[in-house]
Amino acid sequence: MATRQSVDDCLEQCKNALNYATDQYEEASLQEHNNVGTYNQSQLMLEEAYNDLDKLLLSANEQQREQLHRMRLQIQQMQNNMILLNQ
Rank of each mutant, 00 (worst) to 15 (best):
D9H: 11
V7K: 04
L58I: 08
A60Y: 06
M82W: 03
C10Q: 12
R4Y: 10
L73M: 10
L84F: 09
S6G: 01
N40R: 14
E62C: 05
S6H: 12
E27Q: 13
E66Q: 13
Y50V: 01
Q41G: 02
Q77S: 07
T3F: 03
Q87E: 11
E12C: 07
M71K: 11
L57Q: 15
L85D: 02
N51Q: 15
Q5E: 14
R4V: 11
A60R: 08
Q74E: 12
H33P: 00
S6R: 14
R4C: 05
K15V: 01
E32Y: 05
M45W: 08
D23I: 06
M45P: 00
M1R: 09
E32P: 00
Y50H: 15
L73E: 14
A17Y: 02
H33I: 07
H33Q: 08
M45D: 13
N61G: 02
L58Q: 15
D52P: 00
M1L: 10
Q24N: 08
N16A: 08
L53N: 13
D8F: 04
T22D: 09
E26W: 04
M78Y: 01
A21S: 07
Q43H: 06
N35W: 02
H69M: 05
K55M: 12
L68N: 04
R70G: 01
N35Y: 03
C14Y: 00
Q67M: 09
Q87H: 12
A2Y: 06
Q87G: 10
L18P: 00
L30A: 10
L58M: 11
H69L: 05
L85W: 01
Y50T: 03
N35G: 04
Q76A: 09
T38F: 05
D54I: 07
M45K: 12
L85G: 02
N35E: 10
Q79H: 05
N86E: 08
Y39N: 00
E47S: 13
L84W: 08
L57M: 15
Q43M: 15
Q24W: 01
A28V: 03
N51Y: 09
N80L: 06
L44Y: 06
N80D: 13
D52V: 04
N16W: 05
N51H: 13
Q5I: 11
L85E: 04
Q76T: 06
L84A: 14
Q63M: 11
C10M: 04
N80P: 00
Q77N: 11
N81S: 09
M1N: 10
L58D: 13
Q31V: 12
M71Q: 11
N19G: 02
Q67A: 05
Y20M: 07
Y39I: 01
V36E: 13
Q77H: 09
M71P: 00
E47C: 05
L56S: 05
E66K: 14
L84H: 10
L44C: 03
E26A: 07
L68S: 04
L56M: 08
I83M: 08
R4E: 15
M1D: 11
L57F: 12
Q76D: 11
E27L: 14
Q79F: 02
C14I: 04
L53M: 13
E32M: 07
Q67W: 10
D52I: 03
E12D: 13
V36G: 01
M45G: 03
Q74R: 15
Q24F: 02
A60Q: 09
T22H: 05
N61A: 01
E12W: 09
D8S: 12
N86Y: 07
